[in-house]
């Protein structure tokens, strides 16, 4: 059985990652920024798993598992923060929480 070459996974991963980064930059809503981040994380997962099938390893899959776990934690904490911010400030877009500006 001929497997899909690594380069194909690479292309998909890079496209997804770039879109994730672009989304993080241009999105105004906090929740959508967080979702763009999930996109980037998934791109990394694709790369790990693709490299695994290319190299006949399983370490990448384990890392992908870890990333999924961390993404879950990150989503939990990040969404908790968003809810807290919203409760305190009644805002949900990034240009309204600029207290840390110099």
């Amino acid at each position: 059985m001929k497997t899909i070459p690594l380069e194909a996974y690479l292309i998909v991963s890079i496209v997804l990652f770039g879109l994730g980064v672009f989304g993080m930059i241009v999105r105004r809503n906090l929740v959508t920024v967080l979702m763009s981040m999930e996109l980037a994380l998934n791109a990394v997962n694709v790369l790990f798993v693709g490299a695994d099938s290319h190299l006949s390893l399983v370490d990448g899959q384990i890392f992908a598992l870890f990333i999924i776990a961390l993404a879950a934690a990150e989503a939990a904490v990040g969404l908790g923060i968003i809810i807290a911010i919203f409760r305190l400030r009644k805002v949900d877009s990034t240009d309204e929480i600029t207290d840390m500006r110099g």
Binding site: T3, I4, Y9, V12, E38, N42, N45, V46, V49, G50, D52, S53, Q61, A64, L65, I68, A69, A71, A72, A75
Partner: peptide, 22 residues
């Protein structure tokens, strides 16, 4: 894509955790 790459476990967890819980 995970399933195609032969990583059934990761694919399943992706569906369970990501696609459902998160």
């Amino acid at each position: 894509l995970f399933f195609i790459a032969g990583a059934e476990l990761v694919g399943a967890i992706q569906l369970l955790i990501y696609a459902v819980a998160v």
